[in-house]
């Protein structure tokens, strides 16, 4: 998985896609995950990190995580590895 290059993620959770001109807002958890993807951490490891860091059950995280990733793909922010 790879985030579209040159995507701008700001501290406030504002995301700007300079290629399409679209902009997005992230909540805190969303920003955390996107930043980790950006650092090249694998999706599995990100899930582990989130489980350690936040008060959440692994079952519900997995579903939310999957949904979030599918939204990132839907918005063309995330691409399969190339």
């Amino acid at each position: 998985m790879k985030i579209k290059s040159n995507l701008a993620i700001s501290e406030s959770g504002f995301v700007f896609d300079p290629e399409t001109g679209d902009s997005f807002t992230l909540n805190f958890t969303g920003k955390d995950i996107l930043n980790q993807i950006n650092q090249g951490i694998s999706l599995n490891d990100i899930q582990k990190n989130i489980l350690e860091k936040y008060d959440v059950e692994s079952d519900s995280l997995e579903m939310n995580f999957y949904d979030f990733i599918s939204m990132l793909k839907h918005f063309n922010i995330l691409h399969e590895n190339e």
Partner: peptide
């Protein structure tokens, strides 16, 4: 600049 737009939409 987009920073103005960002400020408005986030805050």
């Amino acid at each position: 600049d987009i920073q103005e737009f960002e400020k408005l939409t986030t805050f």
